[in-house]
Simulated scan of single mutants.
Amino acid sequence: MTNFARIATLLAALPIWGAGATLVQAADRPPRLVEFQSPLVGGPQALQGYLRLPDGPGPSPAVVLLHGCGGGWRGIDERWGKLLAAWGYVTLTVDSFGTRGITNACTGPPPPTLYDAYRALNFIVGQSSVDPSRVAVMGFSQGAMLALLAVERGEIERSAKEKFRAAIGFYPPCLGLKGNMTVPTLILIGELDDWTPANECRNLAESRDDWGISREKGQGIPIELTVYPGAYHDFDVPHFRTPQKLLGHHLEFNEEARDRSVDAVRKFLYATIGGKEKQP
């Protein structure tokens, strides 16, 4: 039995808050489609996303989820939103493209999504079910870069009133980031990733740029980096059990890497924003 299957079995067996409730019930409930906006961004356009609530009384810790350049926010909610809700976290999976009329942002100029993490954060901390002092951001590929930028010391982080307490990036493009993080940060990436190279994330975590020159060394909170041998881009996406090419890049599901990443995310979130059992 894989780690992922063992975790799912354990979740289904454990009792949780409220008579007769089990952890798996949170994952079984469909998400709620919500709209939100923020004064951080000009214009009237609202964002949308899937909101999931865990079982039991709140307030609970929460996780904002950000998709990559191909969209796929519903898939992220299905893979990670359901699992995190089963663990006891409120989740908000952001759709950065739909209301903007964007279908794909893998080529051409970057989409206007830099502040979307904080737009989502401002919305989610206003929910009575959420503990505003315990919210993390977790992104995938382009969304992982946005998650890291949201907690890197700079204009984006400084301009926000509410703050994230932790960040997780799955296979982010690390080149160009400074690495001066304001909160604990975890990066998970495949050794064979030919779209967002692992070596660039090693340089970031070790305070080097792509020429090996020291940068921001000793500043900020250290980045925790895990590189999975034999894994490519999108290693957590079962849709790519049959490998595919996108814009010349190799996409492939890797069950072992996915299972290890599930365990790493669970431990990291518990260590940084806690879990239900840490409620007063």
Rank of each mutant, 00 (worst) to 15 (best):
T113C: 06
Y115I: 01
Y115G: 13
Y115E: 13
D116H: 06
Y118R: 08
F123A: 12
I124F: 10
Q127K: 08
S128K: 04
V130N: 14
V130S: 10
R134T: 03
V135M: 11
V137C: 11
S141M: 02
S141N: 04
A144I: 00
M145N: 13
L146K: 06
L146Y: 08
L146E: 11
L146V: 06
A147S: 15
L149Y: 06
A150M: 04
A150S: 15
V151Y: 02
V151Q: 08
E152L: 02
R153S: 15
G154T: 00
I156G: 11
I156E: 15
E157N: 13
R158Q: 15
R158C: 13
S159Q: 11
A160C: 10
A160R: 02
A160L: 06
A160S: 15
K161A: 14
K161Q: 14
K163W: 10
R165A: 15
R165V: 10
A166F: 00
A167W: 07
A167Y: 08
I168P: 07
I168Y: 00
I168K: 03
G169R: 02
Y171Q: 08
Y171I: 04
P172L: 02
P173H: 09
P173D: 04
P173I: 00
G176N: 08
G176C: 12
G176Q: 09
L177D: 09
G179N: 01
M181P: 11
M181V: 08
T182C: 06
T182I: 09
V183C: 02
V183W: 09
P184S: 07
P184L: 05
T185Y: 02
I187T: 06
L188D: 12
I189Q: 10
I189K: 07
G190H: 09
E191A: 13
L192H: 10
L192W: 06
D193A: 12
D194T: 01
W195R: 13
A198F: 07
N199M: 03
E200A: 12
N203G: 12
N203V: 00
L204S: 14
A205L: 00
R208A: 07
D209L: 09
D209K: 02
D210C: 03
D210A: 12
G212Y: 06
G212F: 05
I213N: 15
I213W: 11
R215Y: 03
K217I: 01
K217Y: 02
I221Y: 09
P222R: 03
E224S: 15
G230C: 04
Y232H: 15
Y232W: 13
H233E: 10
F235Q: 07
F235Y: 12
D236N: 09
D236R: 00
V237Q: 10
V237L: 09
V237K: 05
P238K: 01
P238L: 01
P238Q: 03
H239P: 14
H239D: 14
H239M: 13
F240I: 06
T242E: 15
G248M: 01
H250Q: 11
H250Y: 14
H250E: 09
L251C: 10
N254Y: 01
E255K: 04
